[in-house]
């Protein structure tokens, strides 16, 4: 999916969780994207982050990176 759209969606998610304590917000963003985004969307997001992550809110980016650690979709993208 287009990076612009994914970035907009991720930033919206970050806007919701921003009011929570930092650690909870990062975990909440990661959990939300992991639960509701199809693997192809997550892979496209990882690719965008690897390309610099333009436009991605810093909190959203931390959520994405948190999720990436144990996401099989990320491993599939790397292999």
């Amino acid at each position: 999916m287009s990076a612009a759209k994914l970035v907009h969606m991720a930033n919206q998610i970050a806007d919701f969780f921003r009011s929570q304590p930092d650690e909870a917000a990062v975990a909440g963003i990661a959990e939300h994207i992991r639960s509701f985004w199809a693997p192809v969307m997550r892979r496209d997001m990882y690719a965008h982050v690897d390309a610099g992550g333009q436009g991605l809110d810093p909190l959203a980016r931390r959520g994405v990176e948190r999720m990436r650690g144990d996401d099989p979709a990320a491993r599939a993208a790397e292999s």
């Binding site: 999916m1 287009s2 759209k5 639960s35 509701f36 985004w37 199809a38 693997p39 192809v40 969307m41």
Partner: peptide, 18 residues
């Protein structure tokens, strides 16, 4: 065990030819 595409995601993917 993975979530699938939502309607708008399907359409986005379709526009991109995937």
């Amino acid at each position: 065990s993975e979530p699938g595409l939502r309607i708008p995601n399907m359409l986005d993917q379709a526009v991109e030819g995937r």
